Amino acid sequence: MSNAHDTALAAADALIAAFAEGRTDDYFAAFAPDATFVFHTTGRRLDSAEEYRALWRKWSEEDAFRVLSCESADRRLQLLGDTAVFTHSVTTRVSTTAGEEVLHERETIVLHRTDGDAWLAVHEHLSAAPE
């Protein structure tokens, strides 16, 4: 594996770990400001990391939304020059005012290498896993 592959995978792993551990500042710092987000739980595309963060704050304030854990499996990273496509199956345990729930989803995270050789997520697509 190439160094670019390893550093892109490490960036994806850091993003997932920050999400799983509830480190929201680190989680949102893993995204480019103009990143886009397509979630099966929202009615439209989110067009920036700040728009997603505002939605996250709303979930937290209105529903006491909190991530309790997140497990990544069936992982694949495709390196395409300065772009990497990371796909995986994800099992996330969350807590809200309604109680705890386990979510089974599939996710694609597109990363792009910056001039400083860091990798930032530029797109995230989350879909429900088939039963």
Rank of each mutant, 00 (worst) to 15 (best):
S2L: 01
S2K: 12
N3A: 13
A4F: 00
T7F: 00
A10T: 12
A10I: 08
A11Y: 00
A11N: 04
A11C: 13
A11I: 04
A12I: 08
D13S: 08
L15R: 02
L15T: 03
I16N: 04
G22Y: 06
R23Y: 05
R23H: 14
T24K: 06
Y27N: 01
F28C: 08
A30F: 03
F31I: 05
F31W: 11
A32H: 09
P33C: 09
D34Y: 09
T36V: 14
T36E: 11
F39V: 06
T41F: 15
T41C: 03
T41R: 08
T42N: 08
T42E: 13
G43D: 14
G43L: 09
L46C: 00
L46E: 06
D47E: 14
S48Y: 05
S48F: 10
E50P: 05
E51C: 03
E51R: 09
Y52G: 04
A54W: 00
L55G: 13
L55Q: 10
L55N: 08
R57E: 15
R57V: 12
K58M: 10
S60A: 15
S60L: 01
S60E: 15
S60I: 11
E61S: 12
E61R: 13
D63P: 02
F65R: 02
R66T: 11
V67M: 11
V67L: 11
L68I: 14
S69P: 00
S69H: 08
S69A: 14
C70N: 10
E71D: 12
S72H: 03
A73R: 14
L77C: 00
L77G: 04
L79V: 13
L79W: 05
L80I: 10
L80Y: 03
L80P: 03
G81H: 07
T83A: 09
T83N: 02
A84S: 08
V85I: 15
F86K: 02
T87H: 03
H88E: 12
T91W: 05
T92A: 11
T92H: 09
R93M: 07
S95L: 13
S95F: 07
T96E: 01
T96V: 11
T97L: 13
T97W: 07
E101C: 02
L103G: 10
L103F: 09
H104V: 08
H104C: 06
H104T: 06
E105G: 04
E105K: 10
T108F: 04
T108Q: 10
I109R: 02
V110I: 13
R113M: 08
T114E: 14
D115C: 08
W119A: 01
A121P: 06
V122C: 10
H123I: 00
H123V: 05
H123T: 04
H125K: 09
S127V: 09
S127M: 09
A128W: 01
A128T: 12
A128I: 13
A129V: 05
P130L: 15
E131H: 14
E131G: 11
